[in-house]
Write a protein that binds this DNA or RNA. Structure first.
Lengths: 147, 147
DNA sequence: CTTGACCCTGCCCTTGTGGGAGGGTGGAGG
DNA sequence: CCTCCACCCTCCCACAAGGGCAGGGTCAAG
């Protein structure tokens, strides 16, 4: 094993395929700021540190960060991701649990989409009838003022 | 005019068609909390107060609150509303200005809808292929882990 | 005079992310 | 060895648009 891994030198760590937070950020697409934040809220386990207190990430940590990044890009909340991560790491998880999390998230998305579409429909209707010129009459303002 | 209106008694104020914040809230649909907040951020002008420092709203104030409420329900941001309110109060506004604000807001909505629809499409595809039973294999987790 | 329903201000919480201050470190070039 | 810059560290603050609570004042009815 050589030296105790709890306190590596920076150069040493890079030599062993471990990366600093900047490289982990570039490799995962998660900003440095957010990597620290995910650690602070316990989404990512506490990683090793160098003597200088620099965080050191393994390939597996970076993999987890990419998982988080991808999940965020699909709109999952941090709490959803917490659950997905634990399911991911649990080799005997039932796929039904994963499916449930995804399905609930999808329903939330669909509902918000529907709400926004109804806003768009109203706005579309109102702007269609707005001259959009120098004149002050405007059905948009009239709607806001009446309803 | 009778008494100076700067410091009314509560009962006095109600007698003149003015309302307290609770009534203004019920009449407008804006929560008491948010009425105060809108005042704090300058969306609503500072209203009169009674001797006891209670806020007193006129019918026109309530009308403005309803305008704000309706605009929020169409998804306009507070900053958009600030602009819409000033256009509403400016009798010589060009309707083109109103239309522009509405159109930009609509574009933002449409873009967010598109992003969310693409999330839903991906999720739908993934959940379709997930057994959703006791077995651990799950294309959802595989996607999150690979991409 | 008490009680309950209001009202007041002020502070903290949310979600996810960015920004900056103030200070320590690593490695390269002079 | 010294200097620099890029990087790292920890805190604190900010945003949207609200919710919630604490601790106190007030009003009207009984």
């Amino acid at each position: 094993m050589g030296k105790n891994e709890a306190f590596l030198e920076h150069a040493d760590a890079l030599g062993r395929g471990l990366v600093d937070i900047g490289r982990a950020s570039k490799a995962s697409g998660v900003s440095v700021k957010m990597i620290r934040h995910y650690e602070a809220i316990g989404l990512l386990k506490k990683v090793a540190r160098t003597h200088a207190n620099y965080r050191v990430y393994s390939a597996s940590d970076v993999h987890t960060l990419r998982f988080i990044k991808r999940a965020r890009s699909l709109g999952f909340s941090v709490e959803d991701i917490r659950e997905l991560l634990s399911l991911w790491q649990n080799k005997s998880r039932p796929s039904a649990s994963v499916k449930r999390v995804a399905a609930e998230h999808m329903n939330g998305l669909k509902q918000r989409i529907a709400e926004m579409q109804s806003m768009v429909a109203t706005l579309e209707h109102l702007t269609e009838h707005c001259h959009g010129d120098h004149r002050p009459d405007c059905p948009i303002l009239e709607d806001l003022a009446k309803a």
